[in-house]
Each structure stands twice: as C-alpha cells, then as structure tokens.
Design a protein around this nucleic acid. Structure first.
Length: 214
DNA sequence: CAAAGACGTGGGCGTGACCC
DNA sequence: GGGTCACGCCCACGTCTTTG
C-alpha cells in the first residue's frame, strides 16, 4: 500500500448528513449518497479500461489506477465492486497485486458448480470463514502461476489519461451518439415488425409523426 | 500508536417478472 | 391494476493491514 502522500479527503459531508456514529467521512464513502444523485454506473468502455488497468497495475492497486487518471470519478469502492463482478467472486484479496485478466478468472468462476459454491449477484461468496494470511498467500501463488500475464504484456499497456472535463464531455458525446444509433436501430426493427404484422395503431402513428418532426 | 487504505459482508432499494 | 418475489446494484460499516 502506498501512503507516502495521502491526498486530502475529497468527500465532504453535507449539512443534511444525519448526526450520530455514521457522521464520519470514510475513504470509501460515496459522494453520490450524500448529494442525493445516482452513483454513475459502468459503461462497457469503462469496464474494459478497468480490465486493462488491473492487468497493468495489478489487482488492489487502486491508488495507482486513480493516479493514472484513466477512470475519473470512480472511487476505490466502486472499482473494487466492479472487480468482484469481473472476477465472479467476492474475495479479491487472493488476486492482490497480480497482473491478470479478470475476465479470464470470471469465466472460470461462472462455470463453477457444487454444494459449496454459494453465490450472491452471480459472485461466489466466501462461506468457509475468513481466510488466514497463509491461505490467502497460498492461493495467490497458485493464481500467479495460472493467470498472471507476462511482464512485457502488461508493461506495454497504455491507458489514456482522462482528467480534463472537456475530454470527459467528448467521451460522453461519443457514448450518446452510439446510444442514439442503437435506439434508431431498435426503432427501425420495431417499425419493420409493425409493417409485417399489420398497420400500426393511431398512437403509434402519432409517435411516428412526432419522431419525424424531431 | 494513529491514520489511512483495503477488505469482507450484510442489507436497502429499485426494477422487472410473475401471478391473481 | 396491484401485490409479491427474486435479482442485481451499490452503499454501510466493522475489521484488518500497512505505513510513518
């Protein structure tokens, strides 16, 4: 863990924050909870960037990923949760520091079956109690031999730095363009189905004409 | 030893499917 | 239509680990 120069907490508790024991700012607290907006989800692009970042920096090196600026706005907690989903298991400690392709592990985990395999949200959860340090280390060694990428592979991964709001805006515009194109394809498919199955209803005609006006 | 980062686990909430 | 349930996302928080 790198704690040489810890940044000041960027999360500020709002005035509306309840009093009591919870009235403490924690490192993994989500600002979105406090400003009453939805936490941003993960797009396919962001998932792929995180996948590359895990391969380049190693699982658990969240501060390096944040400092790289490739996933602006993402908290450690969000990245940790997304990593759990990609790995297909809740415990990430046994992959700590490994330069792996999380999807590779996730694919294998998705195929695991058995009475001792308990899942939550498709992630295998730990049912046998907390692992000892030796157990974690032993698993990590096995994972390193099995999954870790060669140094020249992960060292050459280039992650685009996204710390300018204009770059973020441009990305969102591209994303919007893609979604609009996808929506248009779906609408075209619906229209095609409607024309083969008969005349559209009055309501559909109104939607169609409104769409044309837009 | 204190402070901060990281991990593991439980639970709240929204959403969609299903049934009546 | 609306009631119930399962599922998935993500937050809350206690605990452990690491570092200066």
């Amino acid at each position: 863990m790198s704690t040489a120069s810890r940044p000041a907490p960027t999360v500020v508790a709002p005035r509306s924050m309840p009093t009591g024991q919870r009235n403490v700012v924690r490192s993994n607290d989500s600002a979105s909870l406090w400003n009453c907006t939805l936490s941003p989800g993960w797009t396919q692009d962001e998932v792929q960037i995180l996948r590359k970042a895990l391969m380049k920096f190693g699982v658990g090196n969240w501060m390096k990923i944040i400092e790289s600026g490739c996933l602006p706005g993402k908290t450690i907690a969000q990245m940790n949760l997304q990593t759990q989903r990609m790995l297909g298991q809740q415990s990430t400690a046994e992959f700590n520091g490994l330069h792996i392709d999380a999807f590779e592990v996730g694919e294998l985990n998705s195929k695991k079956q058995g009475p001792d395999v308990k899942r939550k949200n498709n992630c295998i959860v730990n049912t046998g109690g907390k692992l000892t340090r030796d157990e974690v280390e032993s698993r990590r060694t096995a994972h390193r031999e099995r999954f870790e990428k060669d140094r020249e592979v992960w060292a050459n991964i280039v992650l685009e730095r996204v710390d300018s709001p204009l770059v973020v805006l441009e990305r969102k515009r591209e994303e919007l363009k893609g979604l609009q194109s996808e929506l248009q394809q779906v609408l075209d498919q619906i229209r095609a189905v409607e024309t083969t199955e008969g005349q559209p209803s009055d309501g559909d005609k109104q939607v169609g004409s409104k769409r044309q006006r837009e």
